[in-house]
Computed example of a mutant assay.
Amino acid sequence: MIFKSFGLIIISETTPIGPPRCKLSTGQPRSRFEFNNMLKLVYHMKKILAVSGGVDSMVLLDIFKNDTDILVAHFNHGTRASADEDEAFVRKRCEELGVDIVVGHAKLGEKSSEEEARKARYDFLFSIREDIKKRLPNEPVFICTAHHLDDLVESVFINLSRGTGWRGLTPFTMPQVSRPFLNDDILLPESRADILTYAARNKITFRADPTNSSEQFLRNRIRAKLETLEPETHFQLNQKIKSLYFSQQLKRVEIEKVLTELSPKDGVFKRSWFLKLEDRLACEILKFALLKHEIKLTGPQVKDFLKAVREYAPEKKFNLPEDKLITLHKDWFKI
């Protein structure tokens, strides 16, 4: 049974949540002492826990609540009326646990995109990390998010639908950001089903995000499709994508090492160079250079950019996302 009161949800142990599609781990080894020591062994660094108030992040907070090296970070996007209630809920729980919390605010509005909200949230998280590093320059500091295996699978499908190519298999690749639920070094909950099971057994309260059921968002539509699969099929799909994710992460390091060596150190590219390169390699170099400046282009957009580099008249400008312009000079351009 699921009890709802004042926007909070408590899942009882009898809640029918379906069979786990991945390994079932409650995050509770033989003793709480042993579990805490395992966490310290794997996560022996300062940790900024990104906690929204949803079930995933509240389970993450519960798992690390006895760690003395955590700081909770909550970002109020200002995108819906209940955002202030989410903030108050997370503040109250941190007060009960005696955990420090930092809250950031924005007024993005209901019409803001998922990408805008994500950028604002990560800017906030990294600003906290930078502040800690200034005071503790020799301490490793990581941002920990509650992304799990189902989030990974959904993100891969979203990326592939947008033509992101091989990079679409490694959506959660970001320096100084850790995803504990995707870490195989310790048995934490891995899938959405695992997290719900942990929440039920440990009587975790959390906030429900009403946008998670809106078909306005591509992620929700993909999630709904995946949930129609038979449990065993869903499990096998998740495990296959997880395997691809980890193997592709290793390949990504090698690929980006080569691309770094190929790219000019001063960021100035010769247009004649791209006339000689094969299309796929030329697109990879352009996309890599743009990503270093946090400019994301789809596959077709990169091809359009390559065409412009090869064919535009001198001094003509090429439009990039967010009204950014690149001037293509006679012989060169700079990103």
Rank of each mutant, 00 (worst) to 15 (best):
I285D: 00
I195Q: 02
S155I: 03
V90R: 03
V177T: 14
G78C: 00
G104E: 05
F33C: 03
T164E: 14
I11K: 15
Q176C: 14
C94I: 08
V141K: 02
L149G: 02
F305M: 15
E13M: 11
R30F: 12
P189F: 09
A193Y: 11
V268E: 14
Q301A: 10
L97I: 08
H329W: 13
P189T: 10
M58L: 09
D86Y: 15
T15C: 11
I17W: 10
V102Q: 05
N36H: 15
R121A: 12
A83K: 05
L49V: 10
W273R: 15
F142K: 07
L71S: 06
L320S: 07
V253C: 00
P314W: 09
F181N: 03
S247A: 15
A208P: 01
S25C: 10
K292C: 04
D323H: 12
L275W: 12
N238H: 05
R167K: 07
M174K: 12
I241F: 00
L160P: 06
A282N: 06
T228Q: 09
T68V: 12
S31M: 04
I2K: 15
F64N: 04
Q176W: 15
K23P: 02
N212I: 03
A106Y: 00
I70W: 10
N76P: 00
V141I: 09
S243I: 03
S263H: 06
N76M: 03
S214N: 01
K265C: 08
D194F: 00
R32A: 11
N183F: 11
S112Y: 12
A120H: 03
Y43Q: 08
K65P: 03
E96D: 14
I2H: 09
K317V: 15
L306K: 05
S214G: 07
I186K: 14
A120R: 01
V59E: 08
E130P: 02
L286E: 06
D86G: 02
L61Q: 10
S31H: 04
T260R: 10
L320I: 13
S5R: 13
P140S: 12
K119F: 07
E130F: 04
